[in-house]
Design a protein around this nucleic acid. Sequence first.
DNA 1: ACCCTAATTTAGCCTTGCCTAAATATTGTC
DNA 2: GACAATATTTAGGCAAGGCTAAATTAGGGT
Lengths: 219, 219
Amino acid sequence: MLSHSVEDYLKAIYELEEDFGLVTTSLLAVHLDVRPASVTGMVQKLAKARPRLVNYERHRGVGLTPAGRQIALEVIRHHRLIELYLAQALGYEWDRVDAEAEKLEHVISEEFEDKIAALLGDPTTDPHGDPIPAKDGTVAEASRRPLTSSQPGETVRVARVRDDDPAFLRYLAELGVTLNAIVQVADRAPFDGPLHVVVGARTHALGRSVTDKIFVEPQ
Amino acid sequence: MLSHSVEDYLKAIYELEEDFGLVTTSLLAVHLDVRPASVTGMVQKLAKARPRLVNYERHRGVGLTPAGRQIALEVIRHHRLIELYLAQALGYEWDRVDAEAEKLEHVISEEFEDKIAALLGDPTTDPHGDPIPAKDGTVAEASRRPLTSSQPGETVRVARVRDDDPAFLRYLAELGVTLNAIVQVADRAPFDGPLHVVVGARTHALGRSVTDKIFVEPQ
DNA sequence: ACCCTAATTTAGCCTTGCCTAAATATTGTC
DNA sequence: GACAATATTTAGGCAAGGCTAAATTAGGGT
């Protein structure tokens, strides 16, 4: 049994690798809300573990080994299944599921995992559009096309929102920018100016930091 | 936020107080599967906490203060609600719910608690017949009449089974001795000999250590 | 009343995972 | 190519909550 802390590190390394490519000490520190010195300590421990869980090169960064990736995927499967279960079975709002799943993911048994997966019909996507890894470790490809890159005139479908901040998620929900919402790009101001999008009958101006976190599929 | 460990101690003290009256160091140690020396250390810490969580007298034992009792009841409410939820919503067998609830009880939010309580219709009894404390801290009286004390000829209803061991619970289930089962006491051998009980069409001989853990209501 | 046994407590140590402060490495700029 | 700014690592500590071994206390039996 691995500690919650180890599971959190492996999960974070997986997700940061996905989102940013290279995983540095400081990136992990920000993400896990600990000091960089603590990250160095833990990362060295993970690299010394048998089987080795991460590949670590001093002053450069860290990446998962196959063994580390497998554990990360199990934790992420737990997390995303739980998020979906909370939303579907218990009526949670999409901005509340992450915090609860964060705690539950480390303690549920395989039986619990299997039972909620079966009840949900072996789902492949969580309430934020992130893919749910299968038990065999396969993961569907997620959209990597930020709304930021959409051109005026395009119509797209919101496929994924890559942020856990409840305030941010509530803000989006209020605008009608929810999972699978259809959005029309009306206009883009130059120099990273706001993107104007039409959602239903309303038009909103979205800043760059917002559109960077919304991933879409062409419609 | 209290540590899982502190919550476990308070819960155990509450339950042992209920079941045995006086709570000694060694009783707690057995129950929590730690060494007596560790119990002494933690109990002293709980007694020094502000607000004080336990009353502790060296070499005599411990008991909960009102503040400690309140926390214990919250943890127990979590535990028993979760047990019932696992059984009713996820189809767990009654011998599997305890282990899972043991881990979940420490991490669920109040929102989770409220949502499953509402879904279950604000239940008052868990799958083993233990009362579920209400949010205001009130607890229904549980049966304190062990099957051991029933006389030949009596017909009783199984109201509560006070053991978490999965093997024991599966054994009882196999005999048909489940919650609310109707049982007839046929015969009692002298000198703590086995009690013969009729359940449905079958008769079983139950040893003292078994009948001590089954609590009944007159039928 | 005393002594022996069993229970309890104390003392001292270990591991985990975090922290701060100081040292060191890397990198971008001139 | 040197140096300043930034990132990372090392060193040393701390709190929690276990453990073992040794000391102490309580209580029952004679």
